[in-house]
Design a protein around this nucleic acid. Structure first.
Length: 313
DNA sequence: AAGTGCTGCAACCGCAATCGA
DNA sequence: ATCGATTGCGGTTGCAGCACT
């Protein structure tokens, strides 16, 4: 089973390995663009490359594919990765499915080299996403309890979604238009849990409790005179008094303003400072947060996040 | 300037899952 | 239903480039 020695190639017949040259990239790219990759095993010989098929496949998937975004991860991508990791663990390919234009390898590397370290630094176990008991500084007892409750709610919600796949859900926006979860299954279920979780996290780090009923919420960046607005599809975007940014220089300026220090501050706020107080605590009760929809309902986004345009169509 | 240690990431390895004859 | 071939995936490694002494 698996990739047998002949396909590993270089071991047996002295094919090239190690970093790809620009010339090799060009040959591979030109061949695939013209013929498609077809059978990877046969590709190198056809294309005239002294590489094994497995190596060609990897190079194409992780580097040469035209639909790949390279470079620094945005703040939102970081948040998404952390949330997805909390939900999915080390299932990098599943995570990549929710991060357009990013590869599983890239996400894995970014997690291992940046995010994991940052969580450790803040006293959070990167595997369990819970406070580390051996850390010298971690959240107070009260916050720790809340975090455990949220973790419990998250797991419960995920399990509940699986159990209740036939449940009919009232649509708060269009009450007459009830939806079954089959509609929602138009997209991966875990994404809905993610969106719920995003709502919770968003509620923790920035959004005032009195605005919980609002369909969208705004995070202010006074230093640059701009706001970041959350939308009903769970995405976030920046605006200036509800006017969208169209100027790329302005966007660049914002990205530069959001420094690592700023991100660290957000992490600290989320995990330590006590914004957990801001989110409703039906979670630990006997019905343990009736479902993920309770979480969603209590989030700044409200239930509307479950009824995005994909579902409503 | 040279040596050393560290970091980030591309690439590799091997197992599991899936395909298809 | 079986089994070899192929693909997908996650863990790990190796090295280039950078920072520090």
């Amino acid at each position: 089973m698996g990739w047998r020695l002949p396909f590993n190639g270089h071991k047996e017949v002295g094919l090239k390995r190690g970093p790809w040259t620009a010339e090799e990239d060009q040959i591979l790219m030109a061949y695939i663009q013209q013929h498609g990759h077809g059978n990877w095993r046969a590709l190198p010989e056809k294309a005239g490359l002294k590489r094994c098929g497995k190596s060609c496949r990897l190079r194409w998937i992780n580097y040469l594919r035209p639909d790949i975004k390279r470079g620094k991860f945005s703040l939102q991508e970081e948040h998404t990765i952390i949330q997805l990791h909390a939900l999915l663990g080390n299932r990098w390919s599943a995570m990549a499915a929710h991060l357009p234009k990013r590869t599983d390898n890239e996400i894995k590397n970014y997690w291992n080299t940046h995010l994991k370290k940052r969580l450790i630094k803040l006293g959070v176990d990167p595997m369990t996403h819970k406070p580390r008991t051996d850390a010298s500084s971690f959240p107070s007892g009260s916050n720790l309890t809340h975090m455990a409750q949220w973790e419990s709610a998250r797991l419960e919600a995920e399990a509940r979604l699986v159990r209740d796949s036939k449940q009919v859900i009232p649509n708060p926006i269009h009450p007459k238009n009830h939806l079954t979860l089959n509609h929602i299954q138009l997209r991966p279920r875990c994404l809905d849990v993610l969106k719920a979780w995003q709502g919770v996290v968003a509620g923790m780090f920035a959004f005032p409790t009195q605005d919980l009923g609002s369909p969208t919420s705004t995070l202010r960046f006074p230093a640059i005179g701009l706001n970041a607005t959350s939308y009903t599809d769970g995405e976030m975007g920046f605006d200036d008094s509800l006017k969208c940014i169209e100027n790329s220089n302005q966007m660049k300026e914002i990205e530069e303003t959001i420094t690592d220090g700023c991100i660290d501050e957000w992490f600290e706020d989320s995990f330590r400072v006590g914004n957990y107080e801001n989110v409703p605590m039906a979670v630990g009760s006997s019905n343990c947060c009736d479902s993920v929809f309770d979480l969603v309902n209590s989030s700044p986004y409200g239930l509307s996040m479950l009824y995005d345009h994909n579902v409503m169509k």
